[in-house]
Structures are given as structure tokens and as C-alpha cells.
């Protein structure tokens, strides 16, 4: 064992990977192992055929031996029909579009609620900011599922909201918000709000308050100062928060599954159905790869903005 390690170390150091190299190599190895390799596996499965076997997909590469002719051949079968099915079936396209719509609405709702929150916290007495941010993060300390179940209790007919409305005389009889797109919006906005507040708060808190004083001094009223100074300077926070909400929201599964109605079509649910109900791993993999492509665009925008920000030296 010791010799294996020493051989490895000497081998690595010969190619200049020991010491400082290792510090860089370890995270890359980690990414290779747990991101790139699974990705390649899923990518591979997306080109196979569904079969009733264990595992439930055909192998891409096969070694065929023809006993009669006495010949052998290597056969590589790439089944691209899985991707055609995504394009051909309305279900998938609708699911993608609906996922994008729900993620976009969630992002906008998070921004609309999160920006004033982050702004108020950043403007609060410095001694209060820590506890206030703590409260924003506090929900993470309990299980995500428990929080979603709590929302079921709040949103269902004869639930908290329904009873409250009835008690106030606004409605007569139970109101069912649960199992609708509205319930999904409420649940997802609630879940992802901290991801919006955190980056917004950090950009707003960093902002030099004397900039607003300078703007006022030059004749700008408070609201115009907000539009001309605060908003543009918090743009990196808006972009970061929006992507942190949008990207996971597109692939969200649990919230729409528990709070959404039967017609709340989201790509996460389609994926789940293909994997576990239909046991069609190849199509499920194709769905996953296509989802990744949909998300790569916003991720690249994010990288671009971050790069520009680093360049601006702030």
C-alpha cells in the first residue's frame, strides 16, 4: 500500500501535479467524478434503446461474432429517436415551456418580494442586520418537505387561509388554493426567496451611502436616486439572485408534485414519470440532457456578467 502511494506521489510530482498542483487537481477530480462522469453516463443512456431488462436500456457498444461466417464486428448503435420524441410530442414541449414559465414567474415574484426585503435589511441599523438575515436563512434549518407539508395545511380547502377568509366573511365556504398553479407559485416563491435575498442584500449592503447623498446633493429626489444609482449598482445582485432562483426552479420536482394540480405540467415531473412510471430511461435521459441545454444559456449569461464585474474591479 505504501509503495502504491509513493509511486503515485512521485509520478504526480514528475508531471508537476504534487503540492500546489494537488490543491487545484482535487476539486477538478471531484467535479470529474461527480459531475462529468454521471453526465456522460446519462448522455450515453439518452442514445440507447429502452428494453425490458436490468438495466432497462440497451448497450451502445456491442461485440458481435458471426459463428457461421467466422467474423466479428464492433457495433455502435446510437439511437437518436429519443430526442426526436422530445421534439415530436407536445407533452414535452409544453412541459418545457410551462417549466420556463413557472420558473420565470417564480423568479419575478421572488424579485418583487426579495428586493424590498433586502433593501430594508441593508438600510437597517447595522446591529439588526445580522439577526434579520438570520431570520431569512432560518427556514433552511428545518426539512424542506416539512415546510411544503405545512403549506398544504395552509392552502387546502378548510385550511388556514380558507378558514380565515370565511371567518372574515370574504368568502362563504371553503376555498381551495391547493393543487393549482397558484399553490405552486406560492410554494416555490417561498422556497427560493432566500436565494434571491442573499445576493441582493450583499450588493445593497456594500453600496456606499455617500453615493445617495451625492445624488441628493446634486438635486435628485429619493425615488430618482433609487432608479439612477441604487438600481443600476444592484444589477449584479439582481442577476445573481434571479439565476439562483430560475435555474433550480426550472427543474423543480417536489413542490409542483405536492402542491400542484394534475394539470401542473413541469419537466421535473415528466422526468420522474419517464424514469419511475414508464421505466423508459433513454427518454428520461434525453429529457434531462435537453433540460441541461435549456439551462446552459442562463448559466453562461451569469458567467459573462460575473466576468464583466470582476473586470470592473469591484
Amino acid at each position: 500500500m505504501r509503495t502504491v502511494v509513493s509511486v503515485l506521489v512521485s509520478g504526480l510530482s514528475r508531471i508537476g501535479l504534487w503540492g500546489r498542483g494537488v490543491v487545484v487537481a482535487v476539486p477538478y477530480l471531484w467535479l470529474m467524478l461527480f459531475f462529468l462522469v454521471p453526465f456522460l453516463i446519462v448522455f450515453g443512456i439518452s442514445f440507447s434503446e429502452s428494453i425490458i431488462a436490468q438495466p432497462p436500456y440497451s448497450s451502445l457498444v456491442e461485440w458481435l461474432t458471426d459463428e457461421d461466417a467466422g467474423t466479428s464486428k464492433l457495433q455502435i448503435l446510437l439511437n437518436i429517436s429519443n430526442y426526436f420524441r422530445l421534439g415530436g410530442d407536445d407533452l414535452y414541449i409544453l412541459a418545457y415551456l410551462n417549466s420556463l414559465k413557472i420558473a420565470a414567474v417564480t423568479t419575478l415574484l421572488c424579485l418583487a418580494i426579495g428586493y424590498p426585503m433586502a433593501y430594508a435589511i441593508a438600510k437597517a441599523d447595522p446591529a439588526r442586520r445580522g439577526p434579520l438575515m438570520m431570520l431569512v436563512i432560518l427556514p433552511f434549518w428545518t426539512s424542506f418537505l416539512i415546510r411544503i407539508y405545512a403549506w398544504i395545511g395552509i392552502l387546502k380547502g378548510n385550511g388556514v387561509i380558507s378558514n380565515l377568509l370565511e371567518w372574515a366573511g370574504i368568502t362563504s365556504g371553503p376555498v381551495e388554493i391547493l393543487y393549482s398553479d397558484w399553490a405552486v407559485y406560492i410554494g416555490m416563491t417561498y422556497c427560493y426567496l432566500p436565494f434571491m435575498v442573499l445576493p441582493l442584500y450583499s450588493t445593497l449592503e456594500k453600496m456606499d451611502p455617500s453615493l445617495l447623498e451625492a445624488a441628493a446633493d446634486l438635486g435628485s429626489r429619493p425615488f430618482r436616486s433609487f432608479l439612477q444609482i441604487t438600481l443600476p449598482l444592484s444589477l449584479p445582485g439582481i442577476v445573481a439572485g434571479s439565476l439562483l432562483v430560475f435555474i433550480p426552479a426550472v427543474g423543480e420536482f417536489v413542490t409542483p408534485e405536492l402542491l400542484g394540480g394534475p394539470d401542473t405540467l413541469m419537466i421535473g415531473r415528466v422526468l420522474w414519470n419517464e424514469f419511475f412510471a414508464n421505466r423508459d430511461w433513454p427518454v428520461a435521459s434525453a429529457v434531462a440532457i435537453a433540460l441541461l441545454l435549456v439551462l446552459v444559456v442562463p448559466i453562461m449569461i451569469f458567467q459573462h456578467v460575473q466576468g464583466k464585474q470582476a473586470e470592473a474591479g469591484r
Partner: peptide, 14 residues
Amino acid sequence: PVNMMFQSYALFPH
């Protein structure tokens, strides 16, 4: 009717 030049200059970075 007053303008001020700030100690930190407070120039708008954007």
C-alpha cells in the same frame, strides 16, 4: 442652493 464635494469623492462608479 448648495453643492458639496465629498471627502471620499462619492463618484458614481457605474
